[in-house]
Nucleic acid binder design. Structure first.
Lengths: 184, 184
DNA sequence: GTCTATACGATGATAGAC
DNA sequence: GTCTATCATCGTATAGAC
C-alpha cells in the first residue's frame, strides 16, 4: 500500500474511533508509519487529509447500504435486511458520528459528504417504502420520505443508545420496535 | 452566581457545543471569567468539572422528559408531546452527543450519568406504551421496551440527520414518520 | 517523496504568593 | 479563594536538506 493510501486508511480509522477534533496529525503519522514530511507532501493538512478519508468512508457506506437494500425480497424484507445488517454497533456509524463533531459541522466542505451520503440512503429507503405502499404492504397513510427518515434515525439513534449503555442490545431493541410497527 | 457555579455552567455550554475532547480548561476559564487557580481549587481537574456539569445536565434533561411525558392525555398523546416538544434541534442532545466522545465512553464514571438518564427516560416511555396497550390504543403485538427504544432512537437519530443537513427539517420528518406508524 | 529541524500557541496541570 | 508563574507535552504546521 502506498504511503498516501496508508495515511488515508489510518485517518479513516482514527476519525471513526475519535472523531475529527479528537484526531491529531501526530496520531495519524504514528498509526500509518509515515513521516511528517510525507503527510504534508501528499495533503495540504489535517483537513485535506480528513476530507479524503471521509469521502472514501462515505462511498463505502453508501455502497453497503445499496447492496443490502437491493437483496431479493419484499419491500419490508429489504428494509429489515438494512436494519438487521451486521454492524459493529459499539463503534458507532463512521459517518453519522461526524455530525457531533463541531469542526465538521462548521465546515461546509467536511459536512457535505456526510450530508449527501445520509440523504442518498434516505432516498433509497423512501423509494422502497413507496413500492411497498403500491403493493399494499404498507398502509396508504404512511409517507415514504417520512418512514425513510424514521428508519435512518432509528439506526443512528440506536448507536447512541448502545454506546451509552456499553452494549449493542439497545440498538437491537430499537430495531425490533420499529420492525413491529412496520408490520402492523 | 458563585465562581464554582459559573465554572459548571460554562462547562455545560461547552460540552454541549464542542463535546469533551473539544473542550479545554482554558476555554472554560475564558467563558466563566474565572482564573486558573479557582478552577483547580474547586475541582480536581477537567474530568471532575465535566462530571459535575454532565450530572447537572442529565438531571435537567430527565426532569424535562418527565414533565412532558406526564402531560394530560392519552398514551399516544403523551408520546407525541415528547417527540414534538420544543428542541434546539441543531444543537443536538446535550446528553446523547456525549456518547460519540471517545473519552466519555472510555470512562465508566463519565458515561454513567449518560447511561442512567437515557435508561430512565426509556423506562418512562415503556410504561406509557404498556398503558396504551392495556387501553387497546396500541396493538398487542407491540412491546413497551422495544417501542420506547425506538422512540428514543428516533429522537437521537433525528439530531444526527438534522445536523448533517444543517436544517431541523429532517428531525421533524423522522418524528412524523414514527407518529404515523404509532397511529396505524 | 521522505526526513529532520524548527516554531509557536494550546493543553492540562502544579506551586506558591497573596 | 484567587492570582500569577512555571512546566512538560501536544497540536498543527513550515523550511529546507537529502
Amino acid at each position: 500500500m502506498s504511503t498516501s493510501e496508508r495515511l488515508i486508511e489510518s485517518t479513516r480509522e482514527l476519525l471513526w474511533e475519535r472523531g475529527y477534533v479528537g484526531t491529531s496529525p501526530k496520531a495519524i503519522l504514528e498509526r500509518s508509519g509515515a513521516g511528517q514530511g510525507s503527510m504534508y507532501h501528499h495533503f495540504k493538512g489535517k483537513q485535506d487529509l480528513a476530507l479524503a478519508a471521509i469521502r472514501r468512508t462515505a462511498e463505502e457506506l453508501l455502497a453497503t447500504a445499496e447492496e443490502v437494500l437491493t437483496v431479493p425480497g419484499t419491500p419490508y424484507e429489504r428494509i429489515e435486511a438494512y436494519l438487521r445488517r451486521e454492524r459493529d454497533v459499539l463503534r458507532g456509524c463512521p459517518i453519522g458520528r461526524l455530525t457531533m463533531d463541531p469542526d465538521i459541522v462548521a465546515s461546509d466542505e467536511l459536512r457535505a459528504p456526510v450530508d449527501e451520503t445520509l440523504d442518498q440512503i434516505r432516498e433509497l429507503i423512501a423509494g422502497i417504502v413507496k413500492e411497498g405502499k403500491e403493493q399494499g404492504q404498507f398502509g396508504t397513510q404512511v409517507d415514504g420520505e417520512e418512514i425513510a427518515a424514521t428508519v435512518l434515525a432509528t439506526v443512528q439513534g440506536g448507536y447512541v443508545l448502545a454506546r451509552a449503555s456499553g452494549s449493542p442490545a439497545a440498538f437491537d431493541t430499537g430495531v425490533r420496535g420499529l420492525l413491529s410497527l412496520l408490520r402492523s
